[in-house]
Design a protein around this nucleic acid. Structure first.
Length: 109
DNA sequence: TACAAGCAATAGT
DNA sequence: ACTATTGCTTGTA
């Protein structure tokens, strides 16, 4: 089952950036990569999937640059993704058909 | 240490 | 819609 492993520098950077996101806002993999200097969104997604810092890190506030939901809990689509939408709506972020309604709610630096 | 495979994505064709 | 690219982690030899 689980193998306890220490967080890597990359993961620490990702979670540190995520924790800087104010409640009611979201960010994108690309924007997050820009903050930490990583151009591979896949690496970020992989780090979030492992999520050794969860739930201390609000990984549900990370969406795709297309303003779509993206994935959650290792599922690019499915019930887990629906839960992600629910969490965001609970914070005031409204979605429509899996798409962000207000693009200004994206956290950009 | 070295090599190969995979990922919650993005950009370009 | 499909393919190529990208950076990082994991597993095996």
């Amino acid at each position: 089952m689980i193998t306890h492993r220490e967080p890597t520098t990359f993961e620490t950077r990702v979670y540190d950036a995520i924790r800087c996101i104010p409640r009611g806002k979201v960010t994108t993999y690309a924007a997050l990569g820009r903050m930490i200097g990583c151009r591979s969104s896949q690496a970020i997604g992989q780090a979030l999937k492992r999520n050794p810092f969860a739930p201390d890190a609000p990984c549900h506030r990370v969406i795709k640059s297309d303003l779509t939901l993206g994935g959650f809990s290792g599922e690019r689509t499915g019930p887990e993704t629906l839960r992600k939408l629910k969490l965001l709506e609970a914070e005031g972020v409204r979605f429509d058909k899996g798409r962000l309604v207000d693009g200004s709610r994206v956290w950009e630096t």
